[in-house]
């Protein structure tokens, strides 16, 4: 089977899985995840290693490229595309968090956060997690309060979608996206700087 045949085959399989999942087939989703993951990871890791010649790459291009590669030009209902992007954003989050953990936890410490962690100790004796890892943790807690909001954060921060793109993908208004993103950001910032757990958010 040559490369074109394989790509075509895979595109039809992915489309089929997306549609099946849209109809509620749980198995289709679990089959789809590794395909999306593998595709994204290949590209993301290459990007992270500076192996891509185009350093001006838009991060969302990774996901759109993956979409084109996996689904091709086939017609897929917008809900299924939204599903795909949601899945892809979630996978991107995993890929990036894994990368951040495996490489160095200490990177450019998150702006504004370093101060509050170090305040009591002067120089940090414990490495401060980078922004990606901190956000991942805070997001996991936010997801317990509001899963849709957590999806929006994934699309915005981990996948790099613009607010308009998110609004289109989820079929909600742009202002809703803005509000969700702003309140999520404030909430996560609050949690990361509070140091002690309070009651509800």
């Amino acid at each position: 089977m040559n490369l074109d045949d394989r790509a075509r085959d895979r595109a039809s399989r992915v489309t089929h899985l997306l549609r099946a999942w849209g109809r509620g087939d749980v198995e289709a989703r679990s089959e789809l995840l590794p395909l999306v993951y593998r595709e994204l990871r290949r590209q993301a890791v290459g990007y992270l290693r500076h192996e891509r010649p185009d350093h001006t790459l838009q991060p969302t291009a990774l996901i759109h490229e993956a979409y084109i590669r996996l689904v091709g030009q086939r017609r897929v209902a917008w809900q299924n595309r939204a599903h795909f992007f949601g899945v892809a954003a979630h996978m991107m989050r995993r890929i990036l968090v894994d990368h951040a953990r495996a490489h160095r936890a200490v990177r450019r410490p998150a702006a504004g956060l370093r101060v509050s962690f170090d305040a009591a100790q002067g120089v940090a004796t414990q490495p401060v997690d980078c922004e990606v890892l901190l956000l991942d943790r805070a997001l996991a807690e936010l997801a317990e309060l509001d899963t849709r909001q957590a999806h929006i954060v994934e699309l915005r921060y981990f996948a790099g979608f613009s607010e308009q793109e998110i609004a289109d993908a989820l079929a909600i208004s742009r202002s809703t996206v803005t509000r969700e993103w702003q309140s999520a950001r404030a909430w996560m910032y609050q949690r990361l700087t509070a140091g002690r757990r309070r009651g509800t958010p």
Binding site: P59, R107, V132, F158, G160, A186, T193
Partner: peptide, 19 residues
């Protein structure tokens, strides 16, 4: 916190990791 969080979580995550 919304006021203080300026600059927090701005860039797409992948950008912060390619440094």
């Amino acid at each position: 916190n919304h006021e203080h969080a300026a600059g927090f979580a701005e860039g797409p995550a992948i950008e912060t990791l390619t440094d």
